[in-house]
């Protein structure tokens, strides 16, 4: 069978069951030159269990790309591989490579700490430090050794404005960040992630612990910052993916299954699995 043929039922499942390699259905992406991150046949194991199978995908620069798929399909693992946060987990092994601006992330000479400064991350559960709001936002600068008060203040204000939080907290920057509401905390984490001007912003289900109003604000925020940063967002929420993202990648069983412009993927999915998932028949 060829990739251009009409979707046959459950092509991925069949391939997995028969143990055959499987190429993802990828279409409608910008040129390689417009892509900032290039995942090249990337596989990952937690001890003996394989979590990612030769995932290859290009992430367009300055756009929002959503990773969707059922629980355990490896989308968070893929996301955490981009800033090598999986290095912290004991027993992780990888194969293949990722290229950020055509430079390898997994070569032995890579400075992981410098890499993480270029790739910001927002987590599923908001995790502000038990410090003041100000110190939370400027944390990336502090650890980079920035001491000039003026610079710190400027970055703090700019980041908080970008995260649409400035108006709410500008008069209490020295108060503990833990006194903020859940939605505010998550926006604070976004402000912290963009304080260091990262090239890529990773978001791991940033709204899953928030109420609808807070979710709407975050989504708005993502759309606002989309032009300035490349956003790679993992989400469980199909509506959210269709609202905020320009491109969507559907992952299933540790494999990239279908990847294309969001509108196309949601309206005319080419694979049966994708269709079943986006229409809510499983997952």
């Amino acid at each position: 069978m060829t990739t251009n043929a009409p979707a046959t039922p459950h092509r991925v499942l069949d391939a997995v069951n028969e143990g055959k390699p499987f190429g993802a259905e990828t279409y409608g992406l910008p040129d390689v030159t417009d892509c900032i991150l290039d995942v090249d046949r990337f596989s990952l194991w937690y001890g003996a269990a394989q979590a990612l199978y030769e995932v290859s995908m290009r992430v367009p620069k300055g756009r929002v790309t959503a990773l969707v798929g059922p629980s355990g399909c490896g989308k968070s693992t893929l996301l955490r591989s981009v800033n090598r946060l999986n290095d912290l987990v004991a027993g992780v092994r990888t194969e293949g490579d990722m290229l950020l601006n055509a430079r390898s992330l997994y070569a032995p000479s890579v400075d992981v700490i410098a890499l993480r400064k270029r790739v910001g991350m927002v987590f599923q559960k908001s995790n502000p430090f038990p410090m003041s709001i100000f110190e939370n936002v400027v944390y990336p600068l502090r650890i980079a050794g920035e001491r000039r008060r003026g610079v710190l203040k400027e970055v703090c204000e700019r980041s908080l404005r970008s995260a649409a939080l400035w108006d709410e907290v500008s008069d209490r920057l020295s108060e503990s960040a833990l006194g903020l509401s859940g939605g505010q905390q998550q926006r604070l984490c976004i402000a912290r992630a963009i304080a260091a001007e990262p090239e890529v912003l990773l978001m791991d289900e940033p709204c899953s612990a928030l109420d609808p109003i807070a979710t709407a604000r975050i989504e708005e925020l993502i759309s606002e910052i989309a032009g300035r940063y490349t956003v790679l967002i993992v989400t469980h929420n199909m509506q959210q993916a269709s609202r905020v993202s320009d491109f969507t990648a559907f992952m299933y069983l540790g494999r990239l299954v279908e990847y294309g412009p969001t509108a196309d993927l949601f309206q005319t999915p080419r694979l049966t699995e994708t269709e079943e998932y986006v229409t809510g028949r499983f997952g």
């Binding site: 400064k117 991350m121 995790n127 260091a196």
Partner: peptide
């Protein structure tokens, strides 16, 4: 919480920076 360590590493902190600024406090 492990999430605080991850947040710190995610910001580009080294292990010692994470320990001295997040874990130890």
């Amino acid at each position: 919480p492990q999430s605080l360590r991850e947040a710190s590493y995610g910001c580009g902190a080294s292990r010692w920076q994470t320990i001295s600024r997040v874990v130890l406090p």
